[in-house]
Simulated assay, not measured.
Amino acid sequence: MDDLWLVGIGTGSPSHITLAGVNALRDAALILVPRKGAEKDDLAEIRHRIIAETGSKARIVHFEYPVRDAELPYQERVKHWHDEIARRWQAALADVDVTGPVALLVWGDPSLYDSTLRIAERLDPAPRVRVIPGITAIQALTAAHAIPLNSVNGAVTITTGLRLRTDGLPTNAETIVVMLDGLCTFRDLAPEGWYIWWGAYLGSDQQILAKGALPEVADRIVRLRADARRRHGWIMDSYILKRVEGSLRNPAQDH
């Protein structure tokens, strides 16, 4: 594999892929598609649908996604997981005659809370990597709620549920974007003075949205999330918190 193309595909809607992404999938010689177990087959199906809608004639090769070892400390767990994903990429291509670029469809965008670029660095020999950006979960979330991300002249903090649990709310934060919060850390925060916009399966037919003053909607979001995960077997969600001064009005009305 001389050339590896990482194509951002947005958050589930085939319309999220850019024209550059469409052209890349059409020009690729081979596309690697992960399988993540029977309960997540629809993730592979979304990728197949996107490939089909682009008109790509590339050969498709599947590989089985490894499971992280929950017994290891977090950083070590992720390192071993990335090592194994890279190994499986190379194993999937070992007996394939590839003449031309290999493409991977990356959920969201390869640059934002995604480790595909870090995994690609483990390949030997190292391929030439091209990144085709996609719609991020943050863009899909703000669009779904029709809100601006930042306040006027305001800073935006992007963090994870894990960091929110260990470090608490960032000091003097105005707008906080939280990714990868499987434990719903927002319900454990001091909720007064915060407004939340939450979304799951953004851009897809299964999209779910909720918003409101955090004390009023936190429990509802937890229930929505748990029910959706039971029905689909997986969930991808994110949310935005904004500090509200005075009454708990909708902060989006101020911008």
Rank of each mutant, 00 (worst) to 15 (best):
A228N: 04
G168A: 02
D205Y: 08
W81F: 15
T171H: 10
E192S: 12
G199Y: 00
T18H: 06
S204M: 07
I17Q: 00
R47I: 11
G8I: 02
D41F: 10
G212P: 05
G246C: 04
A226Q: 15
P215Y: 06
R223P: 02
G134N: 07
M1G: 15
A92T: 06
P191S: 08
I60S: 09
I132A: 00
G100H: 03
E121P: 03
P73F: 05
I135K: 13
V78E: 14
S13C: 13
E64M: 09
L4Q: 06
R130V: 12
K57P: 09
R87N: 10
D109M: 03
R128C: 11
I135T: 15
D3I: 15
Y65G: 11
G193P: 04
L6Y: 03
I196S: 07
L123M: 12
E76N: 09
L32C: 05
E76S: 11
D237M: 01
P215C: 04
V67T: 13
R220K: 13
P14D: 07
G193T: 02
I9D: 00
D227P: 02
D254C: 09
D205C: 08
L241T: 02
V244N: 01
V7Y: 01
V152G: 10
R128K: 13
F186S: 00
V22N: 03
E53I: 14
T116Y: 08
K40Q: 15
P66F: 02
L123K: 01
P125C: 01
D181M: 00
L224A: 06
R88Q: 06
E45G: 14
M236F: 14
G10W: 00
I135S: 00
G154F: 03
Y74H: 12
W194I: 03
V222R: 12
R163D: 14
Q206I: 07
H16P: 04
T142M: 08
L183H: 14
Q90E: 15
T157A: 09
E53Y: 10
D181F: 01
A29D: 14
G233P: 01
